[in-house]
């Protein structure tokens, strides 16, 4: 899972996801945060969804300006489904950054169930990862995987390819550097568009 690195782009994209929370104080001129609000000011007690980064930073002030609630995919109903059989769930549609967001949100869970659900889900879906990395139908098998799962599967596929090539030939041909090859491909694609 991603470490909370200040400069990590994955982390930034994860903290852009919205979480539901409840405000304790008034927020004048911040009415636009709640799309259903009528006037300019946000009243105390409103329930709305704001991005995680804002929620985290407002929650850490003393006194905290809001309380964070669990997003619906980490609530009881979905937790039941995941604990039953995690392999049938399409995690890409449910939440692309399922695991990372879960790590953040687990802090606000009083009972501590979210952590267990996350670990269980990953254990059950591990085999799906392996099949996706080894299969020929890559698009179909990668579809239900979340963002980080896809990265793992892709890395596994690359490694497997490398070892099978090494076993067959005993030595590897030199290849064009990665960035150079992709740069050329993009240039050719752009030129074909005109």
């Amino acid at each position: 899972m991603s470490c909370s690195n200040y400069l990590s782009i994955t982390d930034i994209l994860v903290s852009h996801e919205k979480v539901p929370c409840k405000f304790f104080y008034d927020l004048p001129k911040m009415g636009f945060l709640d799309p259903s609000a009528v006037d300019d000011d946000l009243k105390a007690g409103t329930n709305t969804e704001i991005p995680l980064w804002l929620a985290e930073s407002l929650h850490s002030r003393r006194p905290p300006l809001l309380s964070v609630d669990l997003p619906k995919i980490y609530k009881d109903a979905y937790r039941e489904i995941l604990n039953a059989d995690a392999c049938t769930v399409d995690l890409y549609k449910l939440g692309q950054h399922f695991y990372e967001l879960g790590c953040y949100v687990a802090k606000y869970d009083i009972k501590g169930d979210v952590t267990n659900t996350l670990i269980n889900t990953f254990k059950q879906r591990f085999r799906m990862l392996l099949t996706a990395s080894a299969s020929n139908d890559s698009i179909g098998s990668m579809q239900p995987l979340s963002g980080s799962e896809r990265k793992f599967a892709a890395a596994a596929a690359v490694t497997e390819n490398a070892i099978s090539m090494w076993l067959q030939r005993g030595d590897c041909a030199l290849k064009t550097a990665n960035m150079v090859a992709n740069h050329r491909k993009r240039k050719r694609a752009e030129m074909e568009m005109f």
Partner: peptide, 27 residues
């Protein structure tokens, strides 16, 4: 006194922008 919360929100937004820009330049 109630404007204090608004200042907090805007300050978070500023820090967020800074972080994203730095991440972009770093990558």
């Amino acid at each position: 006194k109630s404007l204090w919360t608004t200042v907090q929100v805007r300050h978070s937004a500023l820090e967020r922008n800074k972080r994203c820009l730095l991440a972009y330049l770093y990558s």
